[in-house]
Amino acid sequence: MSYVSHADLGGKSGFGPIVPEPEGEYFHAAWEPRAMALTVAMGATGSWNIDQSRAARETLPNYLQMSYYDIWFAALQKLLEERGLVLPDEIAAARVLHPPLAVPRVLQADNVAAVLATGASTERPTTAPARFAVGQVVRTNAGEVPHHTRLPGYVRGKCGVIERLHGTHVFADANANPMATGHPDKGQWLYTVVFDGADLWNDPASDVKVSIDAWEPYLTAA
């Protein structure tokens, strides 16, 4: 099965104008704050990680036709169904039909502030020297990736310069599929890599610089 992300939008065209929004205007329908809170609260149960939730969202076939909270809610249902936490017949019937499964933890109201303030660091102990140094030219991997990844299409196969090292962080590609790799928390070196817009967009007039944060497996020495 090929993996298709509908969320890799950098450099694409045809989406129309940007619609501004006043500061403090967070929601546009009564259900949106509940969908936001359900998503955050279920995320806090530890039933899946952030890359698994990103994978669930970006593979929704109608991603580009959906509002962002539609995407969140549809992906939440998908994640729940995939894990058997809520089964499709329960979603259809809108009531409980099967016994609950155990979840690692439940976010309680009096714990919300502390849980949000703590977050979840992705930094991990460094166990290997960094392969690349600041100022070094690297090339990103080219071609399609058959699973969740955080290397955008618009930089694939391009040369950039290492600007900064960030230590070892949980590697998104492995984190999205920990069963396949077995070592979801091992981490990889993370770098900020800067690209010339002229090269990215094949436009000599471009004077923009664009950077991504890239894990070491995305890069080779150029």
Binding site: R34, L38, A41, M42, T45, S47, F73, L76, Q77, L80, L85, V86, E90, I91, A94, R95, V96, P100, V103, V106, L107, Q108, A109
Partner: peptide, 12 residues
């Protein structure tokens, strides 16, 4: 969905 998740004890 909120009521199902609540009844199953996944959310408060």
């Amino acid at each position: 969905l909120e009521s199902v998740l609540s009844e199953k004890g996944y959310i408060d």
